Amino acid sequence: MGILNVTPDSFSDGGQYSSYEIACRHADEMVRDGATIIDIGGESTRPGAAPVSLNDELLRVIPLVEYVAKHHDVWISIDTSKPEVMQQAVNAGADLINDVCALSQPGALAMAAQLDVPVCLMHMQGKPQTMQNQPEYQDVVDDIVAFFTQRIDDALKAGIKRENILIDPGFGFGKTLAHNYQLLAELHRFKTLSIPLLIGLSRKSMIGNLLGCDVLERDNGSAVAAMLAVQNGADIVRVHNVKLTVEMLRVLDATNNYAALST
């Protein structure tokens, strides 16, 4: 899953792809590099990020959804928590709803059920404005598994099909450095839920704070973390540097399936 942020204040690429033409070219590049899903977002969820109005978010994302749907044979993910954006994006060609609020906003559960497309439920402790203010857990994995157990049940009761549900433990969303690396080490524990696992840790502070590097210098650490995530059960990895990640995954796949190379 390649990340396409069309926001002026994204933590990693703020403003870099906020122009429509530049964002389209970046989508083209990520598809050439091997992305099979493009995740389009118009509202930053970095710590301390300010909310974006419905109209501004629609103006940012809908033209890009339409562009990717017209020009590329890939899945399109809409990264939003607003029911109205979900509806218009799916009508424009989006295939997947990626919601950092796990469909907790008013009307989101009903809208996702009505649209009948896959939806990713993400865990976040608190809100973007406050989520990094001393996050606490009894056990971070146990607590998030319990959260997903309840949220999956809520989604099913709202009419969302089980086969349309994905989960994302929310690296960096209300977690300390230790919480993030425990999640990465014990990712396999989420497989007990029998739900596909989407992982987004590309260029996040868990990489930068550990390695002491700036945002745009975190791709190597992000690729290693993505490899560990896949080895521990991740089904989809959401990344900024698609080419580097695809090459890593090809090497990993060849290692796991070396017998096929001799046939």
Rank of each mutant, 00 (worst) to 15 (best):
K191Y: 03
K191F: 06
T192M: 05
T192I: 04
L193K: 07
S194H: 12
I195Y: 06
I195V: 15
I195W: 08
P196K: 10
P196A: 08
L197Y: 14
L197C: 12
G200L: 10
G200I: 07
G200N: 14
G200Q: 13
L201H: 06
S202K: 01
R203W: 01
S205F: 07
G208I: 10
N209R: 12
L211G: 01
G212V: 08
C213Y: 00
D214R: 11
V215C: 02
V215Y: 03
E217M: 06
R218C: 03
R218S: 09
R218N: 06
D219S: 14
N220E: 01
G221Y: 05
S222L: 10
S222W: 12
A223P: 12
V224W: 11
V224P: 10
A225Y: 10
A225D: 04
A225W: 05
A225M: 10
A225G: 05
A226C: 09
L228G: 05
L228K: 14
A229T: 08
A229I: 05
A229M: 08
V230W: 02
V230S: 05
V230A: 00
V230H: 02
Q231M: 06
N232L: 00
N232W: 03
A234K: 07
A234M: 10
V237Y: 02
R238M: 08
R238N: 13
R238F: 08
V239M: 08
